[in-house]
Amino acid sequence: MAVEKLLAAKPDRHTAISSSGRRRLKLPLQIRAAEAVDLVAVIALDERITGVNKREYWDEMFARYGKIRPKGGFFLVAESGDRKSHGRVLGFIIGEVRAWEFGSAPCGWVFALSVAPEARLHGVGEALFEALSAEFKNAGVNKMRTMVARDNRLTLMFFRGEGMMAGPYIELEKDID
Protein backbone atom coordinates (compact mmCIF):
# COMPACT_ATOMS: atom_id res chain seq x y z
CA MET A 1 0.00 0.00 0.00
CA ALA A 2 1.11 3.54 -0.68
CA VAL A 3 0.90 4.54 2.98
CA GLU A 4 3.22 1.77 4.10
CA LYS A 5 5.80 2.93 1.57
CA LEU A 6 5.29 6.51 2.68
CA LEU A 7 6.06 5.97 6.36
CA ALA A 8 8.14 2.81 6.47
CA ALA A 9 11.00 4.84 5.04
CA LYS A 10 11.33 6.84 8.27
CA PRO A 11 10.47 4.59 11.17
CA ASP A 12 12.90 6.15 13.64
CA ARG A 13 12.01 8.61 16.31
CA HIS A 14 12.56 12.07 14.95
CA THR A 15 11.85 15.65 15.75
CA ALA A 16 10.12 18.21 13.65
CA ILE A 17 10.49 21.95 13.93
CA SER A 18 7.10 23.54 13.93
CA SER A 19 6.30 26.96 12.53
CA SER A 20 6.59 28.35 16.05
CA GLY A 21 10.14 27.07 16.29
CA ARG A 22 9.22 24.59 19.05
CA ARG A 23 10.52 21.07 18.62
CA ARG A 24 7.90 18.36 18.72
CA LEU A 25 8.99 14.82 19.34
CA LYS A 26 7.39 12.59 16.76
CA LEU A 27 6.77 8.98 17.69
CA PRO A 28 8.11 6.15 15.54
CA LEU A 29 5.08 4.91 13.67
CA GLN A 30 3.84 2.62 10.99
CA ILE A 31 0.66 3.56 9.18
CA ARG A 32 -1.03 0.55 7.59
CA ALA A 33 -4.43 -0.79 6.56
CA ALA A 34 -6.52 -2.00 9.50
CA GLU A 35 -6.65 -5.73 10.11
CA ALA A 36 -9.22 -7.78 12.00
CA VAL A 37 -6.92 -8.02 15.05
CA ASP A 38 -6.93 -4.19 15.34
CA LEU A 39 -10.68 -4.00 15.91
CA VAL A 40 -10.48 -4.60 19.67
CA ALA A 41 -8.04 -1.70 20.03
CA VAL A 42 -10.10 0.55 17.71
CA ILE A 43 -13.31 -0.13 19.65
CA ALA A 44 -11.55 0.43 23.00
CA LEU A 45 -9.97 3.69 21.83
CA ASP A 46 -13.28 4.99 20.48
CA GLU A 47 -15.02 4.06 23.74
CA ARG A 48 -12.33 5.86 25.75
CA ILE A 49 -12.86 9.03 23.72
CA THR A 50 -16.63 9.02 23.24
CA GLY A 51 -17.75 7.03 26.29
CA VAL A 52 -19.93 4.83 24.10
CA ASN A 53 -19.23 1.24 23.10
CA LYS A 54 -20.18 0.93 19.43
CA ARG A 55 -19.04 -2.61 18.70
CA GLU A 56 -21.68 -3.25 16.01
CA TYR A 57 -20.85 0.01 14.25
CA TRP A 58 -17.12 -0.77 14.15
CA ASP A 59 -17.74 -4.34 13.00
CA GLU A 60 -19.73 -2.89 10.14
CA MET A 61 -17.07 -0.27 9.39
CA PHE A 62 -14.41 -2.96 9.25
CA ALA A 63 -16.57 -5.19 7.07
CA ARG A 64 -17.11 -2.26 4.71
CA TYR A 65 -13.68 -0.62 4.64
CA GLY A 66 -11.22 -2.97 6.29
CA LYS A 67 -11.95 -6.45 5.10
CA ILE A 68 -12.81 -6.08 1.46
CA ARG A 69 -10.84 -2.86 1.00
CA PRO A 70 -13.10 -1.44 -1.68
CA LYS A 71 -11.71 0.90 -4.30
CA GLY A 72 -11.70 4.36 -2.75
CA GLY A 73 -12.33 3.21 0.85
CA PHE A 74 -9.58 3.35 3.47
CA PHE A 75 -9.42 2.24 7.11
CA LEU A 76 -5.90 2.97 8.37
CA VAL A 77 -4.32 2.51 11.78
CA ALA A 78 -1.20 4.05 13.32
CA GLU A 79 0.86 1.40 15.01
CA SER A 80 3.59 2.22 17.50
CA GLY A 81 7.12 1.39 16.37
CA ASP A 82 8.50 2.18 19.81
CA ARG A 83 10.36 -0.71 21.48
CA LYS A 84 8.26 -0.53 24.66
CA SER A 85 4.84 -0.38 23.04
CA HIS A 86 5.63 -1.98 19.71
CA GLY A 87 2.53 -2.86 17.69
CA ARG A 88 0.11 -0.89 19.86
CA VAL A 89 -2.63 0.91 17.93
CA LEU A 90 -2.26 4.63 18.71
CA GLY A 91 -4.94 5.91 16.39
CA PHE A 92 -7.00 5.32 13.30
CA ILE A 93 -8.61 7.15 10.41
CA ILE A 94 -11.33 6.15 7.94
CA GLY A 95 -12.25 7.78 4.68
CA GLU A 96 -13.71 7.09 1.30
CA VAL A 97 -14.06 8.68 -2.09
CA ARG A 98 -17.61 9.89 -2.65
CA ALA A 99 -18.92 11.23 -5.90
CA TRP A 100 -21.76 13.45 -6.99
CA GLU A 101 -23.49 13.85 -3.64
CA PHE A 102 -25.41 17.11 -4.04
CA GLY A 103 -23.55 17.71 -7.28
CA SER A 104 -20.09 17.48 -5.71
CA ALA A 105 -17.33 16.15 -7.98
CA PRO A 106 -15.50 13.10 -6.53
CA CYS A 107 -13.71 14.00 -3.31
CA GLY A 108 -12.25 12.20 -0.30
CA TRP A 109 -14.40 12.20 2.83
CA VAL A 110 -12.74 11.79 6.23
CA PHE A 111 -15.40 10.48 8.58
CA ALA A 112 -13.50 9.01 11.52
CA LEU A 113 -10.25 10.04 13.20
CA SER A 114 -9.10 9.21 16.69
CA VAL A 115 -5.76 9.34 18.50
CA ALA A 116 -5.05 7.97 21.98
CA PRO A 117 -4.84 10.98 24.35
CA GLU A 118 -1.35 10.03 25.60
CA ALA A 119 -0.07 9.90 21.99
CA ARG A 120 -1.43 13.31 20.98
CA LEU A 121 0.86 16.18 19.96
CA HIS A 122 3.42 13.67 18.65
CA GLY A 123 2.43 13.66 15.00
CA VAL A 124 0.14 10.60 15.05
CA GLY A 125 -2.96 12.40 13.75
CA GLU A 126 -0.85 14.27 11.22
CA ALA A 127 0.71 11.01 9.93
CA LEU A 128 -2.74 9.39 9.62
CA PHE A 129 -4.12 12.43 7.85
CA GLU A 130 -1.19 12.60 5.43
CA ALA A 131 -1.42 8.87 4.71
CA LEU A 132 -5.13 9.11 3.94
CA SER A 133 -4.46 12.19 1.83
CA ALA A 134 -1.89 10.17 -0.17
CA GLU A 135 -4.43 7.38 -0.64
CA PHE A 136 -7.05 9.82 -1.89
CA LYS A 137 -4.54 11.31 -4.30
CA ASN A 138 -3.68 7.83 -5.61
CA ALA A 139 -7.40 7.23 -6.05
CA GLY A 140 -7.52 10.27 -8.33
CA VAL A 141 -9.17 12.93 -6.17
CA ASN A 142 -7.62 16.26 -5.27
CA LYS A 143 -9.93 17.47 -2.50
CA MET A 144 -10.70 16.20 1.01
CA ARG A 145 -13.72 17.06 3.14
CA THR A 146 -14.85 16.38 6.65
CA MET A 147 -17.47 17.53 9.14
CA VAL A 148 -16.76 18.55 12.73
CA ALA A 149 -19.07 19.64 15.54
CA ARG A 150 -18.74 23.40 16.09
CA ASP A 151 -17.94 22.91 19.77
CA ASN A 152 -15.29 20.23 19.14
CA ARG A 153 -12.50 22.75 19.34
CA LEU A 154 -9.58 20.31 19.48
CA THR A 155 -10.60 18.43 16.34
CA LEU A 156 -11.41 21.66 14.53
CA MET A 157 -7.97 23.02 15.43
CA PHE A 158 -6.36 19.81 14.17
CA PHE A 159 -8.05 19.87 10.76
CA ARG A 160 -7.40 23.60 10.41
CA GLY A 161 -3.76 22.95 11.23
CA GLU A 162 -3.65 20.45 8.40
CA GLY A 163 -4.75 23.18 6.02
CA MET A 164 -8.49 22.47 5.80
CA MET A 165 -10.64 25.54 5.14
CA ALA A 166 -14.38 26.19 5.05
CA GLY A 167 -15.85 24.50 2.00
CA PRO A 168 -18.66 25.50 -0.32
CA TYR A 169 -21.35 23.47 1.49
CA ILE A 170 -23.30 24.32 4.65
CA GLU A 171 -24.55 21.50 6.84
CA LEU A 172 -28.24 21.83 7.78
CA GLU A 173 -30.51 19.81 10.04
CA LYS A 174 -34.01 19.83 11.46
CA ASP A 175 -35.95 18.16 14.23
CA ILE A 176 -38.47 15.75 12.73
CA ASP A 177 -41.81 16.47 14.39
Binding site: S18, S19, S20, R150, D151, R153, L156, M157, F159, R160, G161, A166
Partner: peptide, 10 residues
Protein backbone atom coordinates in the same frame (compact mmCIF):
# COMPACT_ATOMS: atom_id res chain seq x y z
CA UNK B 1 -16.08 28.36 16.00
CA UNK B 2 -14.04 29.61 13.05
CA UNK B 3 -11.90 32.08 15.00
CA UNK B 4 -11.54 29.60 17.87
CA UNK B 5 -10.15 26.91 15.58
CA UNK B 6 -7.39 28.95 13.94
CA UNK B 7 -4.17 28.91 15.95
CA UNK B 8 -1.12 31.09 15.40
CA UNK B 9 0.69 28.08 13.87
CA UNK B 10 -2.21 27.50 11.47
Amino acid sequence: ATLGSITIVT
